[in-house]
């Protein structure tokens, strides 16, 4: 099913709003991870607004789809999407990383409505998704488990332990979204420890792979739709993205992996997001 044009317009506006939240939140906190948040914005927005079966009024609803932000650093985009979806007030975003708030630097499953598990130590999300998917299959429930993984994060061994588990147990209710922005904290992924043939790796692990432009909402939308129809094996959406997408001076550089904009930079960024 393709994205209807009125929904597309709506989502496009929403991604702008979310990008504004991202820069404002990190500016407010004076720290945080804007680069990998901006690269994941279309992916998470389309997922939560068009595909996930969740109820913001009942975040722990037993039949819900689950989402794990395995690349747990990217809370600015995650919290923004959750707030816009109605899990908590949008105003609360401006308590990001505050000592007396609940929007910690990395997601806390216990305190934040809509967050299904804590993360921030990399590599752990896919195992969690597998567990939920196994439980859903046992119960004969149509629940789906989504997980977002970074390309740099894929240097963690547990990602591949878990990828074997997903395929071995034929967990077709698991969908991994790989935010393939090619940059990690220190440098380009290729300069640190490259992914080589990343797509072939996922395929060799027994996954159905869909390679897309992660900023093209039509692409993103149809990838999630296709993933729902794949039977017998899990789906990995390999989404080519740009770190820092949407703000010219933040794009495609590792400098904005974990740096907050100052007053001037915030102003410049917001001008680009009108």
């Amino acid at each position: 099913m393709q994205l209807e044009s009125n929904r597309k317009e709506y989502l496009q506006e929403l991604t702008k709003t979310i990008r504004r939240h991202i820069v404002k939140m990190t500016h407010h906190a004076g720290s945080g991870h804007p680069g990998g948040s901006l690269s994941a914005t279309e992916l998470l927005t389309d997922l939560f607004f068009e595909h996930m079966n969740v109820d913001p009024n009942e975040p722990d609803w037993e039949e819900r789809d689950v989402f794990f932000l395995s690349k747990g650093h990217c809370t600015p985009v995650y919290y923004s999407v959750l707030a816009e979806k109605g899990f908590f007030p949008v105003e609360e975003l401006m308590t990001f990383r505050d000592v007396d708030g609940r929007l910690h630097g990395h997601p806390c499953g216990e305190h934040i409505p809509g967050v299904d598990a804590s993360s921030g130590s990399l590599g752990q999300g896919l195992s969690l998704a597998n567990g939920v998917a196994m439980a859903a299959k046992l119960d004969g429930k149509p629940r789906r488990a989504y997980v977002m993984i970074g390309d740099g994060e894929s240097q963690e061994g547990q990602v591949w332990e878990a990828a074997m588990t997903t395929a071995h147990f034929n967990l077709d209710n698991v969908c991994a979204i790989i935010d393939w922005n090619k940059i990690q904290l220190d440098d380009y992924v290729e300069n640190i420890k490259g992914m080589k043939d990343f797509k072939a790796k996922w395929e060799a692990f027994g996954w159905h792979v869909i390679e897309i432009d992660g900023h093209n909402l039509d692409d993103v939308h149809s990838a999630f739709e296709q993933a729902k129809t794949v039977k017998g094996k899990p789906t990995a959406i390999l989404a080519h993205t740009v770190k820092g997408k949407g703000i010219s001076f933040m794009e495609n550089t590792h400098k904005w992996h974990g740096l907050a904009p100052n007053d001037e930079e915030l102003e410049l960024a917001l001008k680009e997001l009108v």
Binding site: E62, V66, D116, A117, G123, Q124, L126, S127, L128, A129, N130, G131, V132, A133, M134, A135, A136, D139, R143, A145, G157, Q158, E161, A162, M164, T165, H168
Partner: peptide, 18 residues
């Protein structure tokens, strides 16, 4: 299989799954 980290994570997911 022989993957203790994945074992614990999968167990946590099963707990989330009820």
């Amino acid at each position: 299989g022989i993957s203790e980290c994945d074992l614990v994570g999968t167990a946590a997911g099963l707990a989330i799954g009820g």
